[in-house]
């Protein structure tokens, strides 16, 4: 078959190239579909079990207040919640998996995705002092610069604010799920109004 530069030849050639490429892509997609889902599920599960207390059965995903959350139950009692919470950071949205106990206090946190500046805001995934202060935290969810009690990451106040906001949202969600009394929830809700 010689290369013909008339309309039929060109159309036929492109048609065949696209047909073969489409077939190849379809085949690869079919083969990799399951592993991709497994990898995503394994990653999500790893994040969830990291932010929750050990033991307890992790539920499938549930929706409330526009956020996804999972519960950890032992028997009929809900022991903790893992809430996927997002807040706007410096470089884009920061998505955090937040483990919250039924009283609204934070158990542990893990950043799922962010686009903060490397070396500054991106430290929210590595800065031990910043991360460890959240364990058992149940305060105002406001950084010290704004009059709260959260130690911000040096030179990354906006990232720290977003982090605190995401956690406050998660905590507030758990409060509304638990139907907790207004007093305990006030910290989180006041913070929300300030935004």
């Amino acid at each position: 078959m010689a290369a013909k530069s008339n309309i039929t030849g060109m159309a036929l050639c492109l048609f065949l190239v696209c047909l073969v490429c489409g077939g190849v892509l379809g085949a690869v997609y079919t083969v990799t579909k399951q592993p991709i889902e497994d990898a995503a599920a394994a990653e999500a599960l790893a994040a969830i079990s990291e932010v929750l207390p050990e033991g307890g059965e992790i539920s499938s995903v549930q929706q409330a207040g526009g956020m996804e959350y999972y519960t950890s139950t032992s028997g009929d009692e809900v022991k903790a919640y893992a809430v996927k919470s997002t807040a706007g950071g410096f470089g884009g949205p920061i998505t955090i998996m937040v483990g919250v106990l039924p009283d609204g206090s934070i158990w542990n946190t893990r950043v799922l995705s962010h686009s903060e500046t490397p070396g500054l805001g991106a430290k929210c995934t590595t800065d031990e002092a910043f991360i460890s202060q959240w364990k058992g935290y149940n305060g105002s969810f406001t950084v010290k610069k704004d009059g709260g009690d959260v130690d911000a990451i040096t030179a990354s106040t906006i990232t720290s604010r977003a982090y605190a906001k995401a956690l406050a949202q998660a905590s507030a969600l758990v409060h509304s799920l638990e139907g907790a009394d207004a007093d305990a929830a006030s910290g989180a809700s006041v913070k929300k109004e300030e935004e």
């Binding site: 290369a3 013909k4 530069s5 008339n6 060109m10 492109l14 190239v17 690869v28 990799t32 990898a39």
Partner: peptide, 30 residues
């Protein structure tokens, strides 16, 4: 040799894009 001159760039781009997408799917999976 069988691709007409006038459409060689679109044809090559499709081929390249196919391999990139294959790579993307495989990397995502494994």
């Amino acid at each position: 040799p069988v691709v007409p001159d006038k459409v060689h760039i679109p044809a090559y781009i499709v081929v390249i894009a196919t391999f990139v997408t294959v790579l993307q799917l495989v990397m995502q999976a494994y």
